[in-house]
Design a protein around this nucleic acid. Structure first.
Length: 361
DNA sequence: TCTGGGGTCCTAGGACCC
DNA sequence: TCTGGGGTCCTAGGACCC
């Protein structure tokens, strides 16, 4: 029988704000908001002082300023965040075997079979704090779902561990939205059916859920509510499956001529990025967001893979012309997918050893 | 008071081939 | 003349996550 899994979720507290405070210690204790300066920017991170005013991630910056007029607003410095992130996860990986990074400021680790896993984690958190100034909150459980919910529970500087049955009880009164995988739309639909809390979803009739969401989703939702999750911690991350560049404009762009000009610049930016990464893709796609927030995508798959500025640009422009946006445009984007190149920094695909026959399956 | 930028995965329909 | 089913590829949209 397989040993009981021990999964940890490690999450940096208010990561961007923390990095800014390390650069500017004089701001310590003040409410701090990391957000762009444009009229349509959103909050990327708020310090805990700012959160007391109701400021949260993904909130329009204009709203955040109104909620907390005394806050110091700093534009994001992604270069600094990437650098600090590298420091943090280098330490974590030096101490733990199986780590799966999830974006810049969090990761899962599989500590199954590790002696005294909680002690190992506590010492790790302490070292990261001492060496980098970054505070990590930790959640531990028998699977990723419980680990994730637990790291959230103790923030900031949290350290929470529990088993599945305890999780079912401790999160019973929480809204379903608290479960990762249940977003605003699904939570809304569940609420319409009378399932507002995790406990209610635990007791929900699966056949009734299936009628509304389909078999697969129904099973998934029940599994989430009862904290069943056997998804593995994936150590190999792999290269991105698509790469895109997009921009929201301070004011909507009205003429097709101007839209085209912007799209060309975006296509160039994307191709230069891909050339640096030595990646080529077959599918060129554009994204157009209209003034009324309608979002449209159009894609074309080419015969061969490319990252050529001319080819990608002309394909993207042709897609835009065919669509001919019927309203002013607030966002334009270009994306390349369908990569069939060798992943960077990896040896070529293995071939059959000499003397071994490749048999048709 | 409006709503960023970078991704992933899933679904569903149509084309096309065997 | 009519009737299949399966598999793959492509496109578009939607939900979700950090």
């Amino acid at each position: 029988m397989a040993p009981k899994r021990v999964i940890a979720h490690l999450d940096c507290d208010a990561f961007y704000a923390t990095v800014e405070l390390l650069k500017r210690p004089d701001l310590k204790g003040k409410p701090l908001i990391v957000a762009g300066s444009g009229p349509r920017s959103v909050v990327t991170t708020a310090s805990y002082e700012a959160r007391k005013f109701g400021v949260g991630s993904a909130m329009p910056a204009s709203q955040a300023r109104r909620l907390c007029p005394t806050a110091v607003v700093i534009p994001p410095d992604f270069t600094a965040y990437r650098e600090k992130s590298r420091e943090v996860w280098t330490i974590v990986r030096s101490r733990l075997e199986a780590v799966q990074g999830m974006g810049i400021d969090e990761a899962y680790a599989d500590l199954t079979g590790v002696e005294k896993p909680l002690r190992v984690l506590r010492e790790l958190v302490e070292q990261v704090k001492k060496d980098t100034g970054v505070q990590i909150s930790v959640g531990v459980g028998p699977n990723r779902l419980i680990a994730k919910c637990c790291s959230d529970l103790g923030k900031p500087a949290g350290f929470v561990a529990m088993g599945r049955e305890e999780a079912c009880i401790r999160f019973a009164a929480a809204p379903t939205r608290r479960l990762p995988g249940i977003g605003p739309k699904t939570a809304e639909r569940l609420a319409e059916m009378g399932y507002v809390t995790v406990a209610q979803l635990q007791e929900a009739d699966e056949a009734q859920l299936a009628a509304r969401f389909g078999d697969r989703w129904a099973r998934y939702l029940k599994a989430r509510a009862t904290f069943h999750d056997d998804s593995p911690v994936e150590t190999e991350s792999g290269a991105a499956k698509s790469v895109s560049t997009e921009r929201t404009f301070d004011t909507d762009v009205e003429t097709h001529d101007e839209q085209e000009k912007i799209l060309r610049a975006l296509a160039r930016e994307l191709c230069e990025n891909l050339q640096a990464k030595r990646r080529q893709g077959r599918t060129v796609a554009i994204k157009v967001r209209l003034a009324d927030w309608t979002t449209v995508t159009r894609a074309k798959t080419l015969d061969g893979s490319t990252n050529d500025v001319e080819l990608v640009t002309e394909t993207a422009v042709a897609l835009l012309r065919a669509y001919a946006p019927p309203q002013p445009v607030r966002l334009l984007g270009v994306r390349l997918a369908g990569f069939d190149d060798v992943e960077p920094d990896k040896p070529p695909a293995p071939v059959a050893p000499v003397g071994q026959l490749m048999l048709p399956v």
